[in-house]
Amino acid sequence: MSSENPPLEFLVISRGQWDADKSPEEIQATIDRFYEWHGELVAQGVMRSGKRLAREGKLVSRERIIDGPFAEAKEVVGGFWFIRANSLEEAARISADNPCLACGLEYEVRPFEHVRASAFAVTSETPGRAA
């Protein structure tokens, strides 16, 4: 990271499930490698810790509150953390070194908006228009 401009912060969302053909021992070895990789990046100030998400949850809409979350296996969100980088591309390159990619998980890397929401702006929540 360059010291000229302070790094930006990006949200990394862990998605998916472990490959069904991986043994518990293979998955555990990968998890152990992840924590080593993660710990090194936290110590370097490149990453901030996040959290794993519990299996249970609630889905809240204008109509009701129901048990959830509801998603296809490939869309399951397992956890999140934060990366400090100078660009989205750099944050994605850092995420590409995550050992868990080899066992089926994938990562969504998203920058934060630095402006307040507006009904007149095209955003990720605007229906029918790509942000």
Rank of each mutant, 00 (worst) to 15 (best):
L41E: 09
H114M: 09
F112E: 01
L53E: 01
I13V: 14
R110N: 08
C100V: 12
E63M: 12
V115D: 08
R116A: 14
S95Q: 04
D32Q: 09
W37E: 06
A43M: 03
F80N: 06
R15C: 15
F10Q: 11
D32H: 10
S95K: 00
W18C: 09
E9M: 10
I65W: 01
G57R: 00
D19C: 06
A102Q: 08
S49A: 11
F34K: 00
I94C: 03
E72C: 06
Y35S: 12
E26P: 00
I94A: 03
A119C: 02
R15P: 03
A96P: 01
V77Y: 03
E108Q: 15
D97T: 11
F80H: 10
S118I: 00
V12D: 05
L101F: 06
I27Q: 05
A43Q: 10
C103Y: 07
W18G: 09
R116M: 14
G50P: 05
P99Y: 10
R33M: 13
S87M: 02
A102L: 07
R52T: 15
P24S: 07
A131I: 02
S118N: 05
E36S: 12
K51L: 10
G16I: 12
V12T: 10
P111K: 03
S49L: 13
F70E: 05
R33V: 02
L59T: 13
A131M: 01
S124E: 11
S23A: 08
G128K: 02
S95E: 04
V115E: 07
R84T: 03
G16C: 13
V76K: 12
G104Y: 08
S61I: 03
R110P: 05
G104M: 09
R15M: 15
A131Q: 00
G79P: 08
Y35W: 14
A43D: 11
D19V: 05
K22I: 09
A71M: 05
H38I: 06
R84E: 11
V12G: 07
I13H: 03
P99W: 07
L8I: 05
A85W: 01
E113Q: 12
K74E: 14
A117H: 09
W37D: 01
V46E: 04
S118V: 00
A73V: 12
F70S: 07
L101I: 14
D67K: 07
A43F: 03
E36N: 10
R48C: 06
P24Q: 04
I31T: 13
K74P: 01
E36M: 06
A92F: 03
G128L: 02
H114K: 11
P6A: 15
E125N: 03
H38P: 00
F10G: 09
A131E: 09
A121C: 03
K22H: 11
G78I: 12
G79V: 10
A121S: 09
H114T: 14
R93N: 15
G45K: 00
S95A: 15
A96G: 13
E25Y: 06
D67V: 08
A85N: 06
A29Y: 02
S14H: 09
A92C: 11
F82Y: 15
V77Q: 13
A71I: 04
Y35H: 09
D21N: 13
A29R: 11
A20M: 05
E26I: 05
V12C: 10
F120D: 14
V115C: 03
L105V: 14
R84H: 12
E25H: 09
E9W: 04
E4M: 12
I94V: 15
P69Q: 06
P127D: 02
